[in-house]
């Protein structure tokens, strides 16, 4: 049991981040806060990927002469890192689009509070 908890310690943080992100998106009324929640949620996923890339006792995936590349255990897995570079960029792009939309919403309704917004739309 202890092994289980310790073996997955990074994973628990992922879950916490995801839950916080979900909470922000579902409960908060302010649209900017929702966007922040969204960002936290994406970060949780990124953290998960980065955490699974690790190997105990391995170094960063940049070839150096001290560690022979034939021994795979010397280097961390480069694939999740690469994937997460992409995912981060996707997250940035999403944020950009989200804020562009928020600006247009604000220009039209002059509020970013969801309740007020819904009232004004009615």
């Amino acid at each position: 049991m202890v092994d289980f908890v310790l073996g997955h310690y990074a994973y628990w943080f992922t879950i916490i981040l995801l839950a916080i992100g979900l909470y922000g998106m579902l409960i908060k009324d302010n649209l900017v806060k929702k966007t922040i929640g969204l960002s936290i949620f994406q970060t949780g996923v990124i953290l998960f990927f980065v955490s699974i890339a690790s190997k105990w006792g391995a170094t960063v995936p940049v070839k150096s002469d001290e560690f022979p590349v034939t021994e795979v255990a010397n280097y961390m897995n480069p694939l999740p890192h690469t994937l997460m570079l992409t995912a981060i960029v996707v997250g940035v792009a999403t944020l950009g689009v989200a804020f562009a939309l928020l600006i247009t919403i604000y220009n039209r309704y002059e509020t970013l509070n969801e309740q007020e917004l819904l009232e004004k739309i009615q």
């Binding site: 995936p61 940049v62 070839k63 150096s64 590349v69 034939t70 795979v72 010397n74 280097y75 897995n77 480069p78 694939l79 890192h81 690469t82 570079l85």
Partner: peptide
Amino acid sequence: VPGNYYVQEAYNDAHTNNMVTVVL
């Protein structure tokens, strides 16, 4: 397994030290 292949062959394939760059 792609992860291993990248570690072992990245330098041979592209003469680049940074494996992440090669994968990317």
